[in-house]
Design a protein around this nucleic acid. Structure first.
Lengths: 155, 155
DNA sequence: ATATGATCGCTAACATGTTAGTTTGTCAGC
DNA sequence: GCTGACAAACTAACATGTTAGCGATCATAT
C-alpha cells in the first residue's frame, strides 16, 4: 500500500505550516496597516540599521522586482528614506525613518509576546524542534542535489 | 545577550525552507509549462479524481479568488473540464481531462524521483523528521492561541 | 409562502511572486 | 582610452496572494 501522495508533498506541508504561524501575527500587522512583506523589510532594516536593496532581498527572501515595489510603497508611507551611495552610483542605501523606527519599537514587543503565547499554547519544545530541523535543512541544502533527467516532451 | 531576532522569525524560516525544497522541483514543472499552483491543482485532482473548487482550495492551500484564475487558465490549456452539479446550481465539479491525466502520470514519477534524490543528498532522516514535526505542528494548531492585546494607535 | 441567514463561486482592487530583459554603472584587461 | 564581462536596480508582463464584497442559490424557521 503506497503512501498517500499528500504525505510526500513537502512544499505544500511547509506552506500550511507557514500559514498556521503567520495567521497568528496577521492581526498585529493589519492593526498597523502593514503587509507581511513590508514588515519583513522594516524588521530587516531595524536589525541592521540600514542596508542596500539586494541585502534586504536576501535576508527577507524577497525577489528584487518585488522589493522594488515594496520599497516604493514604504517610501510613500514615509517609513524609509534612501540615499545614493558615494563611490558607486548604481547602489542605494535604505534607512528607517524616525517614524518607522518608533513603529518598529512598538510592534516588536507585540510580536515577541504573541510568539510567547503560541509557545504556551502549542508547547515550546515542538516549536524549538522545528527551528532546529528547519535550520539543519537550510544548512544541508548547500549540498547540491542531482537534478532528475527530464524526458523529451512528446506533445 | 539576547537572541538574534531572525532566530525567532519562524514564518521567514519556513519560507526559506520551502524555497529550498521547491527550487529542486521547479525545473520539472517549467519543463511542462506549469506553474507551481497549477500543478498543485492538477495533483489534487489526480488524487481524488474530481472535486469542487472549494475542496481544491483547502487541499492546495490556495484562496478562492486565486483558484478562480488558476482554474480558468487550466481550462484554457485544456487541462481541466467543468460540469455543473445537478441539484445545486451554485456548485461546479472539476475533472481532469485525458490530456492532463496523461500529463500527471508523466510528471508524478519525475517528482517522486527528484524527491528520492533530495533524500539521498540531504539524508532521509532529516526529511522524515521535518515531516513529523510539521504535521505535529499543524495538528496542534487546532489549539486556539490567545491573541495579544493590541494598543490603541497613537499616530 | 416568505423572510432570513448561510454557502458557493465570482469580481474588483491592490500587493506580491516570477521570469525575462533593460539600463546604468563598475571594473579588469588590453 | 576602449572594450567586454559583470553587477545593481529597475521595468514589463503575467500569475498569484489578500481582503472586501457581490449575486445567485440553497437551507431553515417562521
Amino acid at each position: 500500500m503506497d503512501q498517500h501522495i499528500s504525505q510526500r508533498n513537502l512544499p505544500l506541508l511547509l506552506t500550511k505550516a507557514r500559514e498556521t504561524i503567520i495567521s497568528q501575527f496577521r492581526p498585529i500587522l493589519k492593526h498597523y496597516g502593514l503587509t507581511e512583506q513590508q514588515w519583513r523589510g522594516l524588521r530587516g532594516l531595524f536589525e541592521e540599521g540600514r542596508g542596500e536593496p539586494c541585502y534586504l532581498c536576501e535576508c527577507c527572501e524577497i525577489l528584487s522586482p518585488s522589493m522594488t515595489g515594496i520599497l516604493k510603497r514604504l517610501g510613500e508611507m514615509g517609513l524609509i528614506s534612501r540615499e545614493p551611495m558615494q563611490g558607486d552610483k548604481r547602489r542605494v542605501l535604505i534607512s528607517l525613518t524616525t517614524k518607522s523606527e518608533q513603529l518598529s519599537r512598538e510592534i516588536i514587543p507585540l510580536v515577541q509576546h504573541q510568539y510567547h503565547l503560541i509557545e504556551q499554547a502549542w508547547g515550546p519544545d515542538l516549536i524549538s524542534q522545528i527551528y532546529n530541523d528547519i535550520e539543519s535543512l537550510i544548512e544541508r541544502s548547500n549540498v547540491k542535489v542531482k537534478p532528475v533527467q527530464l524526458p523529451v516532451r512528446s506533445t
